[in-house]
C-alpha cells in the first residue's frame, strides 16, 4: 500500500502509519452462505472504531477472524502487522479481547480472578491499579457469581486490558445492560481511548457508535456499506430534506436535496405566502442508519 511506501514523516515512524487493522476482501462462509462477503476495513492506531449493524450482519464473525480465533475463507487480514491466522503468543499478548466469560469459573473473587491472569502476560497492569480503573475496588473480594451484570462486564474489560494491549476488541459490550451501566461503560471506553488504546467495538446500538466511535463502519448482510465519522454517515442521504405541508385537505410530502427552490415555489403559489402545516426536516442519524442497513446492495461510497 502507498501509505507504507511514503517517506517517513517528520514525527513518528512507518510503524505508526501502519493501521492497527487492515482487511481486504474478507470472506467467511458457513455451509456455502457468505456471512462475511468481501469486507474492506482499516482501523487506524489510536482510534475507536465501531462496527455497527443489525444482528446477524457478520460483525462478530469479522471480529473473531481479526482476533485469530476463527479462520477466513478468503481475503487479506493484518492485525498489528501480523496475520491473525498465524499470530503467536507474542502477538496475542499485544491484543486484548473482552470476552463473555472470565474463563476462570465463577467461584473466584474478583481479585483472585485478576491475580490469576497476571501470570499470563508479559507486562500485566497491577491488580490494584486495574481494579481502580474499572471501578471494582469495592467489589474486589466479592465472588464473580455475586456480581451485577454491569460489574461482570467491567471485570471482563479489566481482563481484556490487563496485558496492556495496543488493540482492544469489544464485541457487543453493552448488550443487555441497563442505561446507567451503559453510560458507565462508555466512560470506561473513553478512558481507554485517552490512554491511546486502539479500540474496535461492535454494536447494534446506533447511539453507542455515535457516542464512542471516531469512525463508524456500517455493516449489513456481510458487507460494509459505509465508513465515516458518525456525523458524516450517509452523506448523500443526509442532504435529502423532507418537506411536508397540507394542500387542500391532503398532506403532501416531497423529498428533495434542494428544499429552497421547493419552498420558493410553494410560497409563490399561495396568494398570502402561507403554507399550512409546513415542516422541513433533515434525516436524523437513525433514519440514515435504517436506510443504510435496509439497502445492503447499495454501493459503497
Amino acid at each position: 500500500m502507498t501509505a507504507t511506501q511514503q517517506a517517513p514523516a517528520p514525527r513518528g515512524t512507518a510503524r505508526d502509519e501502519e493501521p492497527a487493522v487492515r482487511v481486504r476482501g474478507l470472506v467467511k462462509r458457513y455451509g456455502g452462505r457468505a456471512v462475511v462477503d468481501g469486507i474492506d476495513l482499516e482501523v487506524r492506531r489510536g482510534e475507536v472504531f465501531a462496527l455497527l449493524g443489525p444482528n446477524g450482519a457478520g460483525k462478530t464473525t469479522t471480529v473473531e477472524i481479526l482476533e485469530g480465533v476463527r479462520r477466513r475463507d478468503a481475503g487479506e487480514v493484518t492485525v498489528l502487522g501480523e496475520d491473525p491466522a498465524t499470530g503467536g503468543r507474542r502477538w496475542r499478548d499485544r491484543i486484548g479481547v473482552v470476552g463473555q466469560t472470565t474463563g476462570a469459573g465463577n467461584a473466584l473473587t474478583v481479585r483472585e480472578t485478576l491475580d490469576h491472569y497476571t501470570h499470563y502476560h508479559a507486562a500485566p497492569v497491577p491488580t490494584g491499579e486495574l481494579l481502580a480503573d474499572v471501578g471494582l475496588t469495592e467489589a474486589a473480594s466479592r465472588r464473580v457469581d455475586k456480581l451485577s451484570g454491569g460489574q461482570r462486564r467491567r471485570l471482563e474489560v479489566a481482563l481484556g486490558v490487563q496485558g496492556r494491549p495496543e488493540l482492544l476488541f469489544l464485541d457487543e459490550p453493552t448488550t443487555g445492560m441497563d442505561p446507567v451501566a451503559r453510560r458507565q461503560f462508555w466512560t470506561l471506553v473513553e478512558g481507554l481511548r485517552t490512554r491511546g488504546t486502539t479500540v474496535l467495538l461492535t454494536t447494534h446500538y446506533l447511539d453507542e457508535a455515535a457516542h464512542l466511535a471516531d469512525r463508524v463502519g456500517v455493516i449489513t448482510a456481510g458487507r460494509l456499506v459505509e465508513v465515516g465519522p458518525p456525523a458524516d454517515l450517509g452523506g448523500d442521504l443526509r442532504r435529502e430534506v423532507t418537506v411536508r405541508w397540507t394542500e387542500g385537505d391532503a398532506p403532501r410530502e416531497v423529498v428533495t436535496s434542494a428544499p429552497g427552490a421547493l419552498l420558493r415555489d410553494l410560497l409563490a403559489a399561495d396568494p398570502f405566502g402561507e403554507v399550512p402545516d409546513l415542516s422541513v426536516t433533515r434525516p436524523g442519524l437513525e433514519d440514515v442508519y435504517l436506510r443504510l442497513v435496509a439497502t445492503p446492495e447499495r454501493e459503497t461510497r
Binding site: 513518528g12 515512524t13 489510536g46 499485544r94 508479559a122 507486562a123 496492556r164 486502539t198
Partner: peptide
C-alpha cells in the same frame, strides 16, 4: 515508536 499505548515499547518476555 511513539505509540501512546502503554507497554508497546520492548515488551518483556512472556511467562
Amino acid at each position: 515508536r511513539t505509540t501512546t499505548a502503554p507497554g508497546t515499547t520492548a515488551r518483556p518476555a512472556l511467562p
